[in-house]
Design a protein around this nucleic acid. Structure first.
Lengths: 335, 335
DNA sequence: TTCACCATCTGTATCGTTACAGATTTTTCC
DNA sequence: GGAAAAATCTGTAACGATACAGATGGTGAA
């Protein structure tokens, strides 16, 4: 026992507790993590004192010794600005982490190199787990983290054979459901304002869309010039052009609320009215879309739940769970 | 989640560089931080090798030794969900931090105890600086951080004498400008849907509002039952009730875009039309409000800029700058 | 009695970094 | 030439935690 008298203005460490209890530092450490080689009464005593003096393990110490950071990193690209669902994700994740020792670090990156933050985190081990979004079918970030054995969960699926934890929204089902709504209102010429090509949920959305049309005996119109990720001003301009075109659709499926608003805005500028000249079905997450135009048909997507699920999944993976068992496909909920 | 064995060896440390250069670990450390007692050619050599092998300082090591975390903590309360401006703030902060070694940690808290996360971070020194929002006139968090000499910056001012870094939006000016717009459209009975009482910007908004009315020779109507922070459904309900009331206003100033949408939504349910029965001026941040109703009069607020400024300010405070010189009052920009 | 064995507890080394107090060499100046 | 000063460089000891290999003492079996 090499304990010095402890000055009590400093933050307590294991040494402080060791001094107060007359035990060794090692014993205190083991006691606090409920190690098997420590007597029950000793554990009680240590826990009591630790609680009384408000001991909190020094994260730098733990991290240096064990490599454990107690950090989950959420990687976001700056593109997503303005869409507001990030807040919901962040809160969902925070919620799930609040009862754990984990912290949430938000790591942004520009579109130029999506791999860079992932590589940085893995190489420097600056987090125990990663959450990424906007997955591509053959996402290099997923491949990389798998090859490195690094725990992660993705918002969105991939085509990669080896299973990984994910939370995804059933966009095929969304598209089919959307078409059902439009068909039931007598719409015949249905178009899709879908996600950008590169992202995997583009495929799900399109395949659901095509299947839905087939079931309804209709043929397809997919907007090629524009996707739901484009700047709102572009989508609006596209909408206006579309409204003036002769073979404009009378039904629209929109993969994002903001894109829907922008598109409607443009269509209205060309004199078309939602609910009359056309109907539109859109995903709704944060803001109630019906307050914008009550004629919009909405289908809910819950990003807070996504955040919660993703956080819990990464933690599970970190604790050795099988990624294959941590996959969730959320069913659209009509609103 | 097991992967392939990691391809190359261990992560390089100072020891690695010391071995490669034949220098001592201390020398390498000093060289990399450009210490004065190291020869110029040695520095060059060390830097070169460090760069070649991709050396990155181990943050846990630095933190344990120096106490420096290289972390800025943004404290958010879960209430703010759905308002979407958080994304903008987060990106603004990230942008400012991207060229520095600092990371952004998002620390949420429930409304129950706003002090808890602040105390935790200060006590455990788990960040080098803190950013808080939604300040009260005599904000206990500010008092606490000041008393502890902890670097921070606030989104919003306080009444506290001792200066601290802040970024605030000139809500008094906003209200006055808003009234000018309304008066110029012949509105005579103007009401305010302002922020909650407890927050300091409530006072600024109200005083600007009252002054604006006085200049226009009008008298005031302030909604007492509702504020811009309330759930949107409540605001909408209030709007509907208001629309049916006999002494309803013909001009409205709204402190938040979402609140404005909710209120309009309610007023419309009671048969009132914006631009006809009433005009409304609202703050606009992420989404273009005119796409919702083109008659809304908007005044811009830039949260991304706020985030940037706040991040730069905390860093400056950390580096010893005078908080009094890090105060910014953003002027409203009419849109 | 002896000794293996278990239950508890402890000291030492270590993670990567930097502060500090030397150590060594070179330069300067008389 | 020699001593003091300056310029470089180095080893050791922390920071707080944990892995590991011993200690210590008590128990029960032979």
């Amino acid at each position: 026992m090499q304990g010095e008298p402890s000055p009590n203005d400093e933050r307590p460490t294991l040494k402080t507790i060791a001094y107060l209890t007359g035990l060794g530092v090692t014993t205190v450490s083991r006691a606090l993590k409920d190690g098997p080689e420590i007597g029950e009464d000793t554990k009680q005593r240590v826990r009591l004192i630790a609680q009384q003096i408000g001991y909190r393990p020094n994260r730098a110490g733990v991290r240096l010794r064990t490599g454990k950071t107690n950090v989950i990193s959420l990687i976001l690209n700056t593109h997503e600005e303005g869409y507001g669902f990030i807040s919901a994700m962040v809160y969902g994740i925070s919620e799930a982490l609040s009862s754990t020792p984990y912290h949430l670090v938000v790591t942004p990156h520009s579109l130029s190199d999506p791999m860079e933050p992932v590589r940085y985190i893995v190489e420097t081990k600056s987090a125990d787990g990663i959450i990424i979004s906007r997955t591509e079918p053959n996402d290099p970030r997923v491949r990389y983290m798998q090859s490195q054995g690094f725990p992660f969960a993705t918002h969105g699926r991939t085509e990669i054979e080896r299973p990984h934890a994910f939370y995804d929204y059933d966009n095929a089902e969304f598209a089919k459901e959307a078409i059902r709504h439009l068909v039931s209102r007598g719409r015949k010429k249905i178009a899709l304002l879908g996600p950008p090509n590169a992202l995997y949920y583009h495929k799900h959305t399109v395949s659901g869309f095509l299947e839905g049309l087939k079931q309804a005996g209709l043929s397809a119109v997919v907007f090629d010039d524009v996707d739901s990720d484009r700047p709102m001003a572009d989508i609006k301009a596209f909408g206006e052009k579309l409204g003036h075109s002769d073979d404009r659709p009378d039904g629209i499926v929109a993969s994002s609320a903001m894109a829907a608003i922008a598109l409607i805005s443009g269509l209205e500028d060309s004199g078309r009215k939602v609910g009359q000249d056309f109907d539109i079905v859109a995903k709704q997450s944060t803001m109630p879309l019906n307050w914008y135009r009550k004629e919009i048909i909405t289908i809910d997507e819950d990003f807070r739940e996504a955040g919660r699920y993703l956080a819990q999944s990464v933690l599970a993976v970190i604790n050795g769970a099988e990624p294959a068992s941590l996959q969730h496909l959320a069913k659209p909920r009509g609103a």
